[in-house]
Every structure is written in C-alpha cells, then in structure tokens.
C-alpha cells in the first residue's frame, strides 16, 4: 500500500487543480470537499475503502458541475480550449484506470465523456484553420519603393533674371528660328544623356505620346529652352 502512495498523490494534485478550474469556470457556489495530502495520507494508511469513496465523491461532483454549467457553455469552451490535447489524453488514461475500480461505472462512460470534449477541440482547431486560409487570401504582396530625394541649392540671381527675361520675350519668333532650333536639339540630346540641373523638368512635361497638339506643345517648349540658352550666351 505504501508503494502506491506517490501515484495517488499525483492524481490528487491534478484533480484538485481541475476542480479549482471548474469552480472558477462555473461559479455555481458548490463547495468542493477535499483533504490536504498529509491528512489523506493518514487515512489511506488505515482505511482503503475511504480512499475509494473519496475518489467516487470527486467524480460525482465533477459530473454535477458539468450539468450545472450547461448554461455557461461558452465560457467552458473558451477555458477548455486552453488545455493541451496531450495532457487530456494522459488524464484520460488515468481516469479509466481509476474508474475501473469504482462500482457502477463502466469504461464507456469515461470514453463518451472524453470524446465529447476532444471532438469540440477538433472543431475549434478546424475554425482556426479556416481563419488562416481567409488571411492568406487577403494578402497581396507588392514591393514598396523608397525613392531617393533630389534637392537643389538656391538659384543665383542671374538665374532669376534669365527666367524673367524668358517670360518677357515669350512672344518673339522669326529671325532667330534656325539658331533656336539648333539650341533645342542640343538641349534634347543633353537631357537624354543624363539628368542635368538645367533641364531636369523637361521630362515631366513630355509624357503624352504622339499627338498633334502635343507636338505643337513640345515644339513650343523646345523653342523657349532655346531662347533661354541664346539669351544667356548673349549676356
């Protein structure tokens, strides 16, 4: 009898934990009676029947709690989902061993009791799987680009004057047509070769494709650019 004591102690400890969880879960007001290990040890030394009776009382209380807590099924499921399946199976094994010793109980009772909870757990884990699938469909991978910012230093007063002069002589044309055209060609080639501080903005305004109006617009812009360069050369 003394040799089996550590095994029974483990059972008592785990069962006490479970009962405390149940009490918190249901808050039904049932006061569960259990003995501290030392006292139980004394009892088990003398009377084996009291040990069996004690186990039976624990099991009966568990069943009663189970019935009363039917109204709080959501809370129970929420808490029960935290249990580990492995732990459940271990407890199951031990309970079947214990119940085998109780009169009036059959292994099928234990089987049905535990299958109910295991089945619920499986269904809850199935829901989790469904959620994961839903999350995958919403993910749309794309690359987020961070452009490097280019800045300018303050332009010189001569640059400002050039700009003003350009605006003043907006309407001029005719005699300087050939030279301005040449300047425009040079400016275009310069822009195509590399990004330069003078002509960086031209590409921002030539992105409409082939079109008569756009061609006119392009010619006008090139014309203005040519004039600007011509005026700078003069000064």
């Amino acid at each position: 009898m003394i040799k089996t004591y550590p095994w029974t102690l483990k059972i008592i400890d785990k069962e006490r934990i479970r009962i405390i969880n149940r009490e918190h879960e249901t808050s039904s007001g049932i006061v569960l009676a259990y003995a501290p290990p030392t006292l139980f040890y004394g009892i088990s030394k003398i009377w084996c029947d009291y040990y069996l009776l004690y186990i039976g009382l624990l099991y009966y209380n568990m069943i009663a709690l189970d019935r009363i807590s039917a109204k709080n099924i959501n809370q129970r499921e929420l808490k029960r989902s935290k249990f580990n399946i492995l732990q459940e199976s271990k407890l199951k094994k031990r309970w079947s061993l214990i119940v085998g010793r109780l009169p009036g109980r059959t292994p099928n009772d234990v089987k049905n009791y535990w299958n109910t909870y295991i089945r619920r757990k499986v269904s809850s884990s199935h829901k989790v799987v469904i959620n994961e699938k839903q999350e995958k469909t919403t993910v749309k991978p794309h690359v987020v680009i961070k452009p490097k910012a280019r800045t300018f230093s303050r332009p010189s007063p001569s640059g400002l004057r050039g700009s003003n002069v350009l605006r003043e002589e907006g309407g001029e044309s005719g005699a300087k047509h050939c030279s301005t055209h040449h300047q425009a060609c040079a400016a275009s080639s310069e822009c195509i070769n590399n990004w330069s501080t003078d002509q960086w903005w031209k590409t921002m305004m030539h992105d409409k494709g082939d079109n008569l109006d756009n061609n006119q617009c392009l010619l006008a812009y090139q014309d203005e650019v040519g004039k600007l360069k011509f005026i700078i050369l003069l000064s």
Partner: peptide, 16 residues
C-alpha cells in the same frame, strides 16, 4: 516639402 515623382524612374524623386 513638395516632391515630384516619375513612375519611369521610381528610384528618385525631386524636391522642388
């Protein structure tokens, strides 16, 4: 800042 972006050159922007 005011910045200009060109989708033909996504690696750069220009602060004007």
């Amino acid at each position: 800042s005011v910045r200009i972006f060109d989708l033909r050159d996504k690696e750069h922007s220009t602060i004007i």
